[in-house]
Nucleic acid binder design. Structure first.
Lengths: 175, 175
DNA sequence: CGATTTGTTCATTTTCAATTGAACAGTTGG
DNA sequence: CCAACTGTTCAATTGAAAATGAACAAATCG
C-alpha cells in the first residue's frame, strides 16, 4: 500500500482538515524556518508561510491553526504581518465565508518588500543617529576630535554604501 | 567650564580607567547595537565592538568590562567571537602583559567574513535540505507531484540566486 | 616557590520576545 | 433576535538565548 501523502492519522475523520504534516510539508516548513532565523523573524511566521507555500490550495486561518498546531492568536498576527509585507495574499473561496490565504511566490516582490519595510526604516534611523553623533563630535578638540571625526566619517560612508547596494541586490535576486 | 569628554564621575580616581561613557561613545555604541539587532547578533557584541571602534587606543579586557559594565565572562566570549570573525584584532601594548584589542575598521573585511562565516554555512545546509526534499517529492504522483515539483524547483532557484549575489555584495560594499 | 594577575568555561539566573488563550467585536444564517 | 462562526487584541505565560559570576587553569611576578 502506497503511503498517503496527506497522512491521515485518524482514519475516521477523513475529508475534513488532514491531521499532522506530510514529509514534504515538514521539510518545506523547516526550510523556511531556517531562512527566517537568519532574518531574525519569529518561527511561527516561517511555519505559516511555508505551509501556504507548499499547499496546492489557499487555506483558511483555522486550517493553518490545526495543521501547524499553533494558537489562533499567533496565526492571526502572523498572517497580518505576512499580508503587510506582501508575502501572502487573501483570496476568495466559493461557498466559504472564511478568508483564505495563499503564498506570494515571486522572490523579487518578497525580497523587495522585506527590504523596503524592515531594513529601510532602520537605515533611515541610522542616518538620523549619525547626524546627532556628528553634532556631539563638533564640541571636541585637538587630536581627539580628529580621531572621532574620522570614525564618524567612516560610519557615514558605510551607511551610504549599504543604501547603494540594497536596491541592486533586489534587482539581481528577482532576475 | 567645558564638559570633560571622558566624563569622570568620581573625581578622586583619575588616570585609571574613566568611569561611564562620553556622549560620543554612547552614540557610537548605540549605532552598532542597532546594526547588530538587524543582524540578529547579541547586544553585548555590538557594545564591545562599538567601544573599541571609537576608542583612540587598544583596550584590555577588564577595561572593556569596567567601561561597559558587562561581566568578565561576557566580554571574554564576545571578544572571542569578534576575533573569530575578524572584527577585532589583538595588539601588543608595551609594559602591559594583558592582551589588548582594537576594532578592525575595514568594512570589506568585516562584511566579507561575516557573510562567509554566518551566512555561508546556512546556505550550505539549505542546499542539503533541498536535496532531501527533492527525494521526498520523488515518491509522489499526479497533479500533486507536479505542484510539489514546481515549488521545489522554485526553492532551488532562489537558493542559487542568493549564492550568486553574496560575493557580489561583498565586492560592492568594500569598494 | 606561593601570591597575584589574567583569562576561560560553564552551570545558573535573567531578560525579553514569542506564544498562548481568554475576552471581545463583528458577521452570518436560521 | 439569538446562536454559531470568524477573526482581533492584549495581558499573562513560556521558552530560548544572553548575561552573570564563581570555579578553574595558566601565566607572571616578587
Amino acid at each position: 500500500m502506497p503511503a498517503t501523502e496527506h497522512s491521515e492519522i485518524l482514519p475516521g475523520l477523513s475529508d475534513s482538515v488532514p491531521v499532522g504534516l506530510s514529509e514534504v510539508e515538514r521539510e518545506v516548513i523547516a526550510h523556511f524556518v531556517e531562512i527566517s532565523r537568519a532574518l531574525g523573524q519569529p518561527r511561527s511566521l516561517a511555519e505559516i508561510y511555508g505551509l501556504l507555500f507548499i499547499s496546492p490550495r489557499p487555506l483558511a486561518m483555522d486550517e493553518v491553526c490545526q495543521r501547524l498546531d499553533i494558537s489562533k492568536g499567533s496565526v492571526s498576527q502572523g498572517l497580518k504581518f505576512l499580508r503587510e509585507i506582501g508575502a501572502v495574499r487573501e483570496v476568495e473561496v466559493k461557498a466559504d465565508r472564511r478568508a483564505h490565504f495563499e503564498a506570494v511566490a515571486e522572490l523579487r516582490k518578497l525580497a523587495g518588500r522585506f527590504l523596503r519595510d524592515q531594513i529601510g526604516p532602520r537605515l533611515a534611523g541610522s542616518e538620523a543617529r549619525l547626524k546627532k553623533l556628528s553634532n556631539a563630535a563638533f564640541g571636541l578638540e585637538g587630536a581627539h576630535k580628529q580621531h572621532v571625526d574620522s570614525r564618524v566619517t567612516m560610519l557615514q560612508s558605510w551607511n551610504k554604501n549599504t543604501r547603494r547596494i540594497l536596491p541592486l541586490a533586489i534587482k539581481l535576486l528577482g532576475g
